[in-house]
Design a protein around this nucleic acid. Sequence first.
DNA 1: TTATGTTATCGTAATATTGCAATATAACAA
DNA 2: TTGTTATATTGCAATATTACGATAACATAA
Lengths: 112, 112
Amino acid sequence: MGISKTAYFSDRQNKIANIAKALGHPARIAIMEHLIKVDACICGDLVDELPLAQPTISQHLKELKQANLIKGNIEGSSVCYCIHKDTLVFLKEFLNQFNGDPKQNIFSCSKS
Amino acid sequence: MGISKTAYFSDRQNKIANIAKALGHPARIAIMEHLIKVDACICGDLVDELPLAQPTISQHLKELKQANLIKGNIEGSSVCYCIHKDTLVFLKEFLNQFNGDPKQNIFSCSKS
DNA sequence: TTATGTTATCGTAATATTGCAATATAACAA
DNA sequence: TTGTTATATTGCAATATTACGATAACATAA
Protein backbone atom coordinates (compact mmCIF):
# COMPACT_ATOMS: atom_id res chain seq x y z
CA MET A 1 0.00 0.00 0.00
CA GLY A 2 2.88 2.37 0.28
CA ILE A 3 3.23 4.62 3.27
CA SER A 4 -0.15 5.37 4.74
CA LYS A 5 -0.23 8.57 6.76
CA THR A 6 -2.44 7.12 9.46
CA ALA A 7 -0.84 9.35 12.09
CA TYR A 8 -2.40 12.37 10.43
CA PHE A 9 -5.93 11.18 11.07
CA SER A 10 -7.99 10.64 14.21
CA ASP A 11 -8.11 7.30 16.01
CA ARG A 12 -11.77 7.06 15.13
CA GLN A 13 -11.13 7.66 11.43
CA ASN A 14 -8.36 5.07 11.46
CA LYS A 15 -10.57 2.58 13.27
CA ILE A 16 -13.42 2.98 10.80
CA ALA A 17 -11.02 2.71 7.86
CA ASN A 18 -9.49 -0.41 9.37
CA ILE A 19 -12.87 -2.10 9.71
CA ALA A 20 -13.84 -1.10 6.18
CA LYS A 21 -10.52 -2.33 4.82
CA ALA A 22 -11.06 -5.70 6.49
CA LEU A 23 -14.40 -5.92 4.68
CA GLY A 24 -12.76 -4.84 1.44
CA HIS A 25 -12.31 -8.27 -0.09
CA PRO A 26 -15.04 -10.50 -1.54
CA ALA A 27 -13.69 -13.59 0.24
CA ARG A 28 -14.04 -11.81 3.56
CA ILE A 29 -17.57 -10.70 2.68
CA ALA A 30 -18.34 -14.33 1.82
CA ILE A 31 -16.90 -15.45 5.15
CA MET A 32 -19.01 -12.92 7.05
CA GLU A 33 -22.13 -13.96 5.17
CA HIS A 34 -21.45 -17.63 5.74
CA LEU A 35 -20.90 -16.96 9.43
CA ILE A 36 -24.21 -15.17 9.76
CA LYS A 37 -25.93 -17.99 7.88
CA VAL A 38 -24.64 -20.80 10.04
CA ASP A 39 -24.14 -18.73 13.22
CA ALA A 40 -20.68 -20.18 13.87
CA CYS A 41 -18.28 -22.44 12.06
CA ILE A 42 -14.73 -23.69 11.97
CA CYS A 43 -12.03 -22.80 9.49
CA GLY A 44 -12.37 -26.16 7.73
CA ASP A 45 -16.01 -25.46 6.89
CA LEU A 46 -14.95 -22.28 5.12
CA VAL A 47 -12.20 -24.13 3.26
CA ASP A 48 -14.94 -26.44 1.92
CA GLU A 49 -17.24 -23.52 1.20
CA LEU A 50 -14.88 -21.14 -0.57
CA PRO A 51 -12.64 -21.65 -3.60
CA LEU A 52 -9.49 -20.79 -1.71
CA ALA A 53 -6.73 -22.82 -0.08
CA GLN A 54 -6.58 -23.33 3.66
CA PRO A 55 -3.70 -20.92 4.31
CA THR A 56 -5.54 -18.23 2.38
CA ILE A 57 -8.73 -18.70 4.39
CA SER A 58 -6.71 -18.66 7.59
CA GLN A 59 -5.12 -15.39 6.54
CA HIS A 60 -8.50 -13.82 5.76
CA LEU A 61 -9.80 -14.96 9.15
CA LYS A 62 -6.80 -13.31 10.77
CA GLU A 63 -7.59 -10.08 8.91
CA LEU A 64 -11.20 -10.14 10.14
CA LYS A 65 -10.12 -10.99 13.68
CA GLN A 66 -7.60 -8.14 13.70
CA ALA A 67 -10.41 -5.73 12.86
CA ASN A 68 -12.60 -7.23 15.60
CA LEU A 69 -15.18 -8.32 13.07
CA ILE A 70 -15.06 -11.93 14.25
CA LYS A 71 -14.10 -13.86 17.34
CA GLY A 72 -12.49 -17.28 17.52
CA ASN A 73 -13.12 -19.79 20.28
CA ILE A 74 -10.75 -22.70 20.64
CA GLU A 75 -12.70 -25.94 20.80
CA GLY A 76 -10.37 -28.86 21.11
CA SER A 77 -8.24 -29.02 18.02
CA SER A 78 -10.37 -26.64 15.99
CA VAL A 79 -11.30 -22.99 16.28
CA CYS A 80 -14.90 -21.91 16.15
CA TYR A 81 -15.46 -18.52 14.59
CA CYS A 82 -18.42 -16.23 14.93
CA ILE A 83 -19.28 -12.64 14.21
CA HIS A 84 -18.46 -9.87 16.65
CA LYS A 85 -21.54 -7.72 16.32
CA ASP A 86 -20.28 -4.73 18.29
CA THR A 87 -17.90 -3.83 15.51
CA LEU A 88 -20.65 -3.97 12.90
CA VAL A 89 -22.78 -1.74 15.10
CA PHE A 90 -19.86 0.70 15.31
CA LEU A 91 -19.58 0.77 11.54
CA LYS A 92 -23.31 1.29 11.19
CA GLU A 93 -23.12 4.25 13.52
CA PHE A 94 -20.53 5.77 11.22
CA LEU A 95 -22.89 5.31 8.27
CA ASN A 96 -25.74 6.87 10.21
CA GLN A 97 -23.91 10.20 10.06
CA PHE A 98 -24.90 10.34 6.42
CA ASN A 99 -28.64 10.30 7.12
CA GLY A 100 -29.43 13.95 6.65
CA ASP A 101 -32.56 15.47 5.19
CA PRO A 102 -33.52 13.03 2.43
CA LYS A 103 -34.87 15.84 0.26
CA GLN A 104 -31.45 17.43 0.23
CA ASN A 105 -28.27 16.46 -1.52
CA ILE A 106 -29.55 13.43 -3.39
CA PHE A 107 -29.02 13.90 -7.07
CA SER A 108 -27.05 17.06 -7.38
CA CYS A 109 -24.37 19.01 -5.67
CA SER A 110 -23.17 22.55 -5.95
CA LYS A 111 -21.07 24.83 -3.84
CA SER A 112 -23.72 27.56 -3.87
CA MET B 1 -2.72 -6.62 -3.76
CA GLY B 2 -1.73 -9.66 -5.72
CA ILE B 3 -4.19 -11.68 -7.74
CA SER B 4 -7.65 -11.31 -6.28
CA LYS B 5 -10.02 -14.11 -7.22
CA THR B 6 -12.97 -11.79 -7.67
CA ALA B 7 -14.44 -14.04 -10.36
CA TYR B 8 -15.10 -16.70 -7.75
CA PHE B 9 -17.50 -14.51 -5.82
CA SER B 10 -20.91 -13.06 -6.58
CA ASP B 11 -21.38 -9.64 -8.15
CA ARG B 12 -23.04 -8.50 -4.96
CA GLN B 13 -20.15 -9.67 -2.78
CA ASN B 14 -17.69 -7.97 -5.08
CA LYS B 15 -19.72 -4.77 -5.05
CA ILE B 16 -19.90 -4.67 -1.26
CA ALA B 17 -16.19 -5.43 -0.97
CA ASN B 18 -15.42 -2.68 -3.47
CA ILE B 19 -17.38 -0.10 -1.50
CA ALA B 20 -15.77 -1.21 1.76
CA LYS B 21 -12.33 -1.12 0.20
CA ALA B 22 -12.94 2.45 -0.98
CA LEU B 23 -13.76 3.37 2.63
CA GLY B 24 -10.67 1.50 3.81
CA HIS B 25 -8.36 4.45 4.15
CA PRO B 26 -8.47 7.16 6.84
CA ALA B 27 -8.02 9.95 4.28
CA ARG B 28 -11.10 8.76 2.44
CA ILE B 29 -13.05 8.55 5.70
CA ALA B 30 -11.93 12.11 6.41
CA ILE B 31 -13.06 13.18 2.93
CA MET B 32 -16.48 11.59 3.43
CA GLU B 33 -16.87 13.22 6.84
CA HIS B 34 -15.83 16.60 5.50
CA LEU B 35 -18.28 16.24 2.64
CA ILE B 36 -21.15 15.49 4.98
CA LYS B 37 -20.16 18.42 7.18
CA VAL B 38 -20.07 21.00 4.43
CA ASP B 39 -22.57 19.28 2.12
CA ALA B 40 -20.41 19.78 -0.97
CA CYS B 41 -16.94 21.08 -1.68
CA ILE B 42 -14.24 21.28 -4.30
CA CYS B 43 -10.98 19.39 -4.38
CA GLY B 44 -9.01 22.47 -3.34
CA ASP B 45 -10.97 22.69 -0.08
CA LEU B 46 -9.91 19.17 0.75
CA VAL B 47 -6.30 19.95 -0.10
CA ASP B 48 -6.48 22.74 2.49
CA GLU B 49 -8.25 20.50 4.97
CA LEU B 50 -6.12 17.35 4.79
CA PRO B 51 -2.37 16.86 5.24
CA LEU B 52 -1.91 15.41 1.78
CA ALA B 53 -0.75 16.77 -1.53
CA GLN B 54 -3.17 17.69 -4.29
CA PRO B 55 -2.43 14.69 -6.52
CA THR B 56 -2.99 12.38 -3.56
CA ILE B 57 -6.35 13.95 -2.74
CA SER B 58 -7.34 13.75 -6.38
CA GLN B 59 -6.46 10.07 -6.41
CA HIS B 60 -8.52 9.40 -3.27
CA LEU B 61 -11.46 11.24 -4.82
CA LYS B 62 -11.15 9.04 -7.89
CA GLU B 63 -11.22 5.96 -5.66
CA LEU B 64 -14.40 7.16 -3.94
CA LYS B 65 -15.99 8.10 -7.26
CA GLN B 66 -15.16 4.69 -8.74
CA ALA B 67 -17.05 3.05 -5.86
CA ASN B 68 -19.99 5.42 -6.38
CA LEU B 69 -19.55 6.87 -2.92
CA ILE B 70 -19.32 10.41 -4.26
CA LYS B 71 -20.35 12.36 -7.33
CA GLY B 72 -18.49 15.20 -8.99
CA ASN B 73 -20.13 18.12 -10.76
CA ILE B 74 -18.02 20.29 -13.01
CA GLU B 75 -18.49 23.94 -12.11
CA GLY B 76 -16.39 26.14 -14.31
CA SER B 77 -12.78 25.34 -13.70
CA SER B 78 -13.40 23.38 -10.52
CA VAL B 79 -15.23 20.20 -9.65
CA CYS B 80 -17.79 20.13 -6.87
CA TYR B 81 -17.98 16.86 -5.00
CA CYS B 82 -20.78 15.51 -2.87
CA ILE B 83 -21.84 12.24 -1.31
CA HIS B 84 -23.81 9.68 -3.28
CA LYS B 85 -26.16 8.43 -0.59
CA ASP B 86 -27.56 5.48 -2.52
CA THR B 87 -24.30 3.63 -2.15
CA LEU B 88 -24.17 4.21 1.58
CA VAL B 89 -27.73 2.94 1.84
CA PHE B 90 -26.68 -0.16 -0.09
CA LEU B 91 -23.82 -0.76 2.34
CA LYS B 92 -26.13 -0.28 5.29
CA GLU B 93 -28.48 -2.88 3.90
CA PHE B 94 -25.59 -5.31 3.84
CA LEU B 95 -24.88 -4.57 7.49
CA ASN B 96 -28.54 -5.07 8.36
CA GLN B 97 -28.15 -8.75 7.55
CA PHE B 98 -26.26 -9.05 10.79
CA ASN B 99 -29.15 -7.89 12.98
CA GLY B 100 -30.35 -11.23 14.26
CA ASP B 101 -31.78 -12.01 17.63
CA PRO B 102 -29.84 -9.78 20.02
CA LYS B 103 -29.96 -12.41 22.75
CA GLN B 104 -28.13 -14.82 20.53
CA ASN B 105 -24.55 -14.92 19.38
CA ILE B 106 -23.29 -11.90 21.24
CA PHE B 107 -20.45 -12.89 23.48
CA SER B 108 -19.80 -16.50 22.69
CA CYS B 109 -19.73 -18.88 19.84
CA SER B 110 -19.73 -22.61 19.61
CA LYS B 111 -20.47 -25.15 16.96
CA SER B 112 -22.85 -27.04 19.25
C1' DT C 1 -2.58 35.96 -26.80
C1' DT C 2 -0.52 35.15 -21.94
C1' DA C 3 -1.31 34.33 -17.26
C1' DT C 4 -3.69 32.22 -13.48
C1' DG C 5 -6.38 28.91 -10.98
C1' DT C 6 -8.12 24.22 -10.57
C1' DT C 7 -8.03 19.40 -11.23
C1' DA C 8 -6.35 15.16 -13.48
C1' DT C 9 -2.76 12.18 -15.07
C1' DC C 10 1.91 10.27 -15.50
C1' DG C 11 5.88 8.22 -13.58
C1' DT C 12 8.06 6.20 -9.89
C1' DA C 13 9.66 4.68 -5.14
C1' DA C 14 8.19 2.56 -1.05
C1' DT C 15 5.19 -0.51 0.90
C1' DA C 16 1.06 -3.63 1.38
C1' DT C 17 -1.97 -7.37 -0.16
C1' DT C 18 -3.16 -11.77 -2.16
C1' DG C 19 -2.62 -16.59 -2.79
C1' DC C 20 -0.51 -20.82 -2.02
C1' DA C 21 3.06 -24.61 -1.20
C1' DA C 22 5.64 -26.05 2.44
C1' DT C 23 5.98 -26.40 7.02
C1' DA C 24 5.03 -25.74 11.90
C1' DT C 25 2.03 -26.16 15.79
C1' DA C 26 -1.45 -28.08 18.62
C1' DA C 27 -5.06 -31.37 20.24
C1' DC C 28 -6.41 -35.78 20.36
C1' DA C 29 -6.71 -40.92 19.29
C1' DA C 30 -4.73 -45.33 18.96
C1' DT D 1 5.05 -43.15 21.12
C1' DT D 2 3.00 -42.53 16.22
C1' DG D 3 -0.62 -40.99 13.41
C1' DT D 4 -4.40 -38.01 12.29
C1' DT D 5 -6.90 -33.79 12.14
C1' DA D 6 -7.25 -28.81 12.33
C1' DT D 7 -5.24 -24.45 12.09
C1' DA D 8 -1.44 -21.08 11.88
C1' DT D 9 2.90 -19.42 10.11
C1' DT D 10 6.64 -18.81 6.82
C1' DG D 11 8.41 -17.62 2.46
C1' DC D 12 7.80 -16.11 -1.94
C1' DA D 13 5.98 -14.39 -6.57
C1' DA D 14 2.65 -11.54 -8.56
C1' DT D 15 0.15 -7.58 -8.14
C1' DA D 16 -2.04 -3.43 -5.93
C1' DT D 17 -1.90 0.76 -3.12
C1' DT D 18 -0.07 5.07 -1.42
C1' DA D 19 2.15 9.35 -1.90
C1' DC D 20 4.01 12.99 -4.45
C1' DG D 21 6.78 15.78 -8.00
C1' DA D 22 6.27 16.98 -12.57
C1' DT D 23 3.30 17.97 -15.97
C1' DA D 24 -0.87 18.01 -18.73
C1' DA D 25 -5.51 19.69 -19.50
C1' DC D 26 -8.98 22.82 -18.86
C1' DA D 27 -11.67 27.16 -17.88
C1' DT D 28 -11.43 31.78 -17.07
C1' DA D 29 -9.23 36.50 -16.70
C1' DA D 30 -6.52 40.13 -18.18
